[in-house]
Amino acid sequence: MFTNTLFLLSAALTLGGAIAVVYSQNLMHACIYLLASFFGVAGLYACIGADFLAATQLVVYAGGVVILMLFAIMLTGGTGNNINRYGLEKIAAMGNKKTYFFAGITAILASLIVLKIIANVLKDQSTTAVITANAPTVERIGTLLATDHILAFEISSVMLLGALIGAAVISRPRKERHD
């Protein structure tokens, strides 16, 4: 009963947040709705016993990505002019009817493709696999990361280092040359 309630709440939070991200016309608000959606996804992870994933989702997204996004919005927001450098009027930054129309068409196409792929699963609900009770996953994930997936683990650590240095180099203010 607990798990069902948690699942329903999380699903509502996830979907509500995602839909609000689509319809919000304010970028700051969209970012807050995105945070709500991430929390919902963490709840969904918790419902299927993925406790470590849920905590990682909270740490990485709520603590890292969303604050980064908010910083970027704050550092860049507020100075939108609607004329581009050729003197033509630009499309509004948060989209207008035309962009939503094309986005809708693309979404319908994509959903048709994805539904075709997952149709078998949705039709056939009688999964043959035995669904076990939720067990702690931390130790098993640690063992797997240090044995079977060690190469991917190391590569991702190198990638993170690269991202760290790359982000610092890219966003560093360049000194004006005097010549």
């Binding site: 700051m28 807050i32 945070l35 406790d51 470590f52 849920a54 905590a55 990682t56 989702q57 909270l58 740490v59 709520a62 603590g63 890292g64 969303v66 604050i67 908010l70 910083f71 704050m74 702690p136 996953t137 931390v138």
Partner: peptide, 25 residues
Amino acid sequence: DLNVGIFYLVGMASLVGVGVFLGGY
């Protein structure tokens, strides 16, 4: 006493940062 107790705590406590930032903004 969650399996991921201290990790969960770190994640939840970072929500305070979002609150502080949004309050200022």
